Amino acid sequence: MTIDIRADDLSDPATQALAAVHLAGMHAGSPAESVHALDLDGLRDPSVTPWSAWIRGEIAGIGALKELDARRGELKSFRTAETHLGRGVARALLRHVIAAAADRGMTSLWLETGSDEAFLPARRLYASEGFVECGPFEGYAADPLSTFMSRTV
């Protein structure tokens, strides 16, 4: 199985739909003040580069890199389509974004994810790729529903 990862301009309805599922899922599981997911306008910001993953022509996942500054990036909007869970899509996207950050000369990556049981698979994935827990960064506030992680690139 080949996972095709490409930069995405968010014009494809399939990509838009998966981004909407991601945002709705974040709002369904957390109070509004604890949701830090980007909507389509946020993903289209010039500081954000979104990617999509495709398997046999079907959307399999999305992920984005937000440039915090020339040396630091933040992972945003990582989501695997339900039909593609367990196929390595999230890991492939994560490795792709880490490589893109390195190509851009970034030296560190940061992320905010949920701290409850539903986000355990995500936290395990990030940890397995070298991310470690840290404190809030770049305007985030401490929140019992958030876990902050970072890694060097």
Rank of each mutant, 00 (worst) to 15 (best):
A122R: 14
S52P: 12
I59C: 00
L40Q: 09
E138A: 15
E138G: 14
L65W: 15
G86K: 07
R71M: 01
S11Q: 14
G57D: 08
D9F: 12
S11E: 08
S34F: 11
A102Q: 14
Q16S: 10
R123N: 03
W54Y: 10
I62S: 01
Q16T: 12
T15Q: 00
P136R: 07
S30G: 00
L109K: 08
L68I: 15
R79N: 00
V35C: 01
R56N: 09
K66C: 09
A19H: 02
G42R: 04
V97Q: 00
P13V: 03
E117P: 13
F131K: 04
S30A: 11
K66Q: 11
R6M: 03
T83Y: 01
F131E: 04
H96M: 06
G114K: 02
L94W: 12
A24S: 12
L23R: 11
L38W: 10
H22G: 04
L111C: 11
M1N: 08
M26S: 05
V153L: 04
V21I: 12
W110A: 02
P31N: 09
E117L: 14
V21A: 04
E58I: 12
G114P: 08
G139T: 09
L94A: 09
S108Q: 15
D4R: 15
A142G: 04
G130Y: 09
V97G: 00
F137G: 10
G63H: 10
A142Y: 01
T113L: 04
T152A: 08
S11H: 09
L18G: 08
